[in-house]
Amino acid sequence: TCPLCKTELNIGSKDPPNFNTCTECKNQVCNLCGFNPTPHLTEIQEWLCLNCQTQRA
């Protein structure tokens, strides 16, 4: 489950994953609780959960 919103993560499912791993804290959170803060920078593959995003802001 997502630590932030308690959504079930579909780990091991044949569906596309509905979660990602935060590059900062390494927690697995669902796609609604994390995002790529710099989608225009292709050389930085970063994906932050809302916790890390808030701490950085």
Rank of each mutant, 00 (worst) to 15 (best):
E8P: 08
C2R: 00
N10D: 05
C5A: 01
L32F: 11
K6P: 14
L50S: 14
N31T: 06
L48C: 15
T42I: 08
C49A: 02
Q53S: 12
L48H: 06
P17F: 05
C22M: 01
D15T: 11
C5M: 00
C49Y: 00
H40E: 09
Q53E: 09
T38I: 07
T1C: 12
N10E: 10
E46Y: 04
C22I: 00
T1P: 05
I11K: 08
T23P: 07
I11R: 08
P3R: 06
T54C: 06
T54N: 15
L9M: 14
C25A: 01
T21E: 12
N10C: 04
Q28G: 12
E24V: 11
L4E: 04
F35K: 15
P16N: 05
L48I: 08
N36V: 13
P17S: 06
P37K: 09
E43R: 14
N51F: 04
C52W: 00
E8Q: 06
C22G: 01
L50D: 15
V29I: 05
S13I: 05
N31K: 14
N18R: 09
T23N: 04
W47N: 03
P3F: 05
K6G: 03
L9C: 06
C30L: 00
N20S: 09
S13T: 10
T1E: 07
P3S: 09
L9I: 08
N36T: 04
Q28C: 11
P17G: 08
C33M: 01
D15L: 11
I44A: 10
T42V: 13
I44L: 13
L9S: 10
L4A: 13
I44E: 14
I44M: 05
N20Q: 13
W47Q: 08
Q53K: 14
W47D: 11
P3V: 04
F35S: 15
Q28W: 07
P37T: 13
T54Y: 03
Q45D: 05
F19Q: 15
C5T: 00
K6S: 13
Q53T: 09
L41G: 13
P39E: 13
L50Q: 14
V29F: 05
P16K: 05
C25H: 02
W47G: 13
L48M: 04
N51S: 05
K6W: 01
N27E: 11
S13R: 05
I44Q: 13
C30K: 02
D15E: 05
N36A: 08
C49R: 01
Q28R: 11
C25R: 01
C33F: 00
C5N: 01
N20F: 09
L9W: 03
E43T: 08
C52M: 00
C30H: 06
N18E: 08
L4W: 02
L41C: 11
C22D: 01
P16R: 06
L9K: 12
P16G: 03
K26Q: 12
F19V: 05
P37Q: 14
N20D: 15
L4M: 13
K6H: 07
G12V: 03
H40G: 13
Q45H: 03
F35I: 14
L9D: 07
G12E: 13
I11H: 13
E43Q: 06
L41N: 14
C25V: 02
C25M: 01
P3A: 05
Q45C: 06
